[in-house]
Each structure stands twice: as C-alpha cells, then as structure tokens.
Design a protein around this nucleic acid. Structure first.
Lengths: 261, 261
DNA sequence: CGCAAGTTTGACGCTGCTCAATCACTGTGG
DNA sequence: CCACAGTGATTGAGCAGCGTCAAACTTGCG
C-alpha cells in the first residue's frame, strides 16, 4: 500500500482521483488499470446514454468531457454536471429502470463502458475501492447541492465565477491545469448558459465583463484563470465540498466511528 | 416475505417507504420497527445538525418536517431538500469529516438518532434493507437534479407548481395526504422563496395568482391541491423520478443484469 | 472560398427584486 | 378582557437584472 500523500505513480485519471480518497494498494491500482483497458473513442456531440434508456453499464471517462443534462418539453435544457477524466457516470444508476437524464459528449472522448456486473465484482473484491466509489458519489451529490445554491441564489457573474473555480480545482486534481492556471474548456456559451440558468446573450456579456476586469482570459477553447482569489471571493467559492485535499484516511475514519455514540 | 403490492400492515413511515422499493420480510420490518423505538421529540426551529459539525449519526424523521439548507455569507439561503416522515438524512454522510450543510426542523418533530455503527450493522444483517437505502439515496439525488432543473429553467409559477406536485406525491406515499388532496405544509413564504430561488414578495404574488386561478387553496398551514393535473401540466411535473410506483422487484432487476452486457 | 457554428451587439421590455409600509394573526402579560 | 409585541402575509411604487428578438460579425473547417 502506498502511504497517503505519496500517490501511486500513474497518469490514469481514475487512480489519480480515487487515490485521493483512500490509499490504494498495488493490486487495487492494477485492477483499476485493467478496467481502463477496453476503452473506446467516441466523437464529440454524441450521447453515451439518453433519457429513457435502460442503464446496463457505467461509463468511465478517460479523456475528454461529458455532461449530464435534461431537456424540457419547450426545448429548454439544464446541464446538471460535467464529467471529466477520472469521473464515473453514476456507479449505481443501473438500479434504475430508466435513465432520467442523458449523458452527452462535449469533445471527442475516450470512454470505458463497464458492465454493471463488473463493477459489482470489483467492489466485492476490493472493499477499499468500493469505499472510494462511495466517496465519489457523495462528492457528486455535494456538488449538485452547490450548483443548486449557485443557480438559486447568486447573480450572473457570481455563478460563472463559481463554476470556473470548481472546474479549475477538479481539473487540477487530474492534472489538466497547467502552471498558468489555464485549461481546456470545450464549452460553448450556450452550454455555459444552460449550466447557470442564464441565456447565451447574458453569458456573453458576463464573460466580457470578467475579461475586462482581468479575472479570466479565453481563447481557442482554453480558459485562463487570471485571478483565482478574486473569483473565489466574488462567488463565495470554497473547495471543501470537492474533498480534494487530504480526505480522512480509513484509519482516521474508523477510529472516529468506533465508539458508537 | 410479503409479496409486492401487498404491503406489510404498518403505520411506520420508514417501512412504508422502503417497502415500496423492495419487498420486506417480517424480520426486516421488525428490525426497522425496532430502529424507530428510541425516538425523541424536537421543537420546531431547532437544528438537528449544522454546517461544520462532525456527523456521527443519521437522523430518521418519524413525524414532522425537516429541511436541508445552506447559508451564504450575505445571508441568502438555499433550501436543498425537505425531509418528511420516513426520510433518512443522508445514510452515508458520516463518511464526511464535516457537514457541508445544515438540517433544521420546520415543525415539532419526532426524530430517531441512529449511530453510524448501527446503520452499518443493519445493512450487514439485511442486504435487502441496504438495497432499499441505496434506492433512497438515488431518489434523493434524482430529486436534487429535478430541483436544479426547476430553479435553473422554469418561471416562478412553474417552480412553485412543480414543488407542490412533488410534495403531494411524496407525502401521499407516507399517507399524509387526505382524500381532498390536502396536506399540512409547515412552510412560511420565506421558506418557499429560499427553496425556489425567489423573494418572499414574489412568492406571495405567485401564490395569489395560483389561488385566483383555482389551482390551490391554502389556510392554516394546510395546502389543498385543487387541480393536480393542471399543476403538473403547467410545471412539466412527472413523478417518475420519485420512483413511487412499483419499482423493479429484486427478481426483475437481477434477471436484467445477469447476462453481463 | 464559403458554409455552419458560435460569438457579439443593440434595442427593448418583462420578470422578478428592493424598499418600505400596512395588515392579520397569535400568544403574552397586566 | 385588552393592549402589546412578534411573526408572517400582503401591498404598492420603482427599477434593475436579465431575457427576447434579430441582425451582424468571427472563427473553424472542408
């Protein structure tokens, strides 16, 4: 087992992410590495699964961006999550009869399709991985709550700022942010609008303002965070809900729970 | 084991709710019944747990209403869930070091505080209960997505209509809606506002409009749905995400998964 | 080079917010 | 039994944030 803080040397995004939740042994890493073997390329713009489908497998994103979304009858759309390398699309969603939302690709992507049975088997064999997956689910849920807060209570500029802070932190966990706090952002303004509950026109004006105020720079599908501190202050962003920084090692958790009270 | 569709006769809201997810045996019902033994009364307005606390237990609501919420620095508040009888407050939340939100009581309530260890034990002994709890978590998450869609994309009247439809369905599952589609709603307009991302003033005007249009009636903390069909149509509500109607029995699910493809 | 997709701009106005006052209800103490 | 206070509901006036519509512009790409 590699001690916490000394991650298993890998560029596998899943191992990188889960390794932050629980320390992973060599065997566990190998199993995860093996999972990633049967990857397939999918082109941008296609859907991995759409509302109404029977979910039979879980998708693991290795490269590229996916997003979770839902349409209303009148054409309005709400984006409910972005899935980046290392993210699993709802580990337990196969319990549902039908998908209640769709998952689409924002860029060309490398994706692993994992049959439900295989996930169950993996969790049986490696309880620590199961625990890490559970962590991941909890973080997804906390993120969803944060998005609700964002859309429900904040102003346009705050919403966008908060989103950018979150993405920056999440992407840096999987090594996709460079030293200049710059990263690939394969989103159109329409997608940003449907994420934050705004219109494209207003997103456009908000982005312009952010550029004028030296908060960000955008070009060629890359976003550069010029002033993370100020973005975080403006939007009230704190990264605790993402649980990226040293979550409790199993040991610590167990001792906290052992005296049942 | 009682066959599906012929529920174990009880007025225990937890059994009532879980029994809809999976068929429960007598032993399982007894275990759940026993859980509910150590209940305590809590007065309205108090918090069960607040942001920053270390979660060590799970709360089960037996009577009354609770709500999950989060404050911003400037005093704005977003309500992120309502918890009604039979609801558990985040079964796995004890994995987190600190609560990232608070849970408060909207009415006098009867609540069971279940130490994390006891929950784990229950899940060990009764896999079917574990499965039902997992279902519950998935439904919570689906509900959160629906709320995000609501707040992000719909107009004021639609938001309120959708919320009322959801509450009506959820409350009727635990037997809290009478024949006239009327139920106790211990919410102030301020709370409705913080749920839907609106102001109290606008909630007030929206409710007036709904009353004038014969959609609802409100008095003495009770809400009567006068025209559920139209409310649902206006807001685009469909109850599928709540998974109240005949979710797959274990058998069906297992056969669907067995050929791993 | 020319199309398609995405971005930007302007004019206009609706939805929903702010502020601030008044009203209604309920429980309290004298 | 009533004055009083506190909480929540209601109202009005004014306006700001953001949406709508429609057109022009820019960029990527075969």
């Amino acid at each position: 087992m590699t001690p916490a803080g000394e991650p298993y040397p890998t560029d596998n995004p899943l191992i990188r992410k889960l390794g932050r939740f629980v320390p992973l042994s060599g065997a566990e890493c190998a199993a995860l590495e093996q999972l990633s073997a049967n990857s397939r390329k999918h082109p941008a713009g296609t859907d991995l699964i759409v509302e109404g489908d029977k979910p039979k497998a879980v998708f693991l994103i290795l490269k590229g961006w996916a997003y979770r979304y839902k349409h209303l009858a009148d054409g309005r759309r709400q984006i409910m999550a972005y899935l980046i390398p290392g993210d699993l699309c709802d580990i337990q969603i196969f319990l549902f009869e039908k998908m209640d939302h769709s998952i689409g690709l924002l860029s060309d992507a490398v994706v692993v399709k994992i049959p439900a049975a295989e996930i169950l088997d993996l969790m049986d064999r490696f309880p620590r991985i199961e625990r890490a997956l559970l962590w991941g689910t909890l973080v997804d849920e906390a993120t969803l709550r944060e998005w609700l807060l964002n859309v429900g209570q904040r102003f346009a500029l705050q919403r966008v700022a908060h989103l950018f802070c979150e993405l920056c932190v999440r992407l840096s966990v999987v090594g996709l942010v460079d030293d200049a706090e710059s990263f690939s952002l394969p989103l159109t303004q329409a997608e940003l609008a449907d994420t934050t509950g705004m219109t494209t026109v207003h997103i456009n004006r908000t982005l312009q303002r952010m550029r004028k105020e030296q908060l960000i720079a955008m070009s060629h599908g890359r976003l550069t965070i010029l002033d993370f501190e100020r973005l975080a202050e403006i939007s009230g962003f704190t990264q605790t809900y993402l649980h990226t920084d040293g979550p409790p090692i199993e040991q610590r958790l167990r001792s906290r729970l052992s005296p049942p009270m």
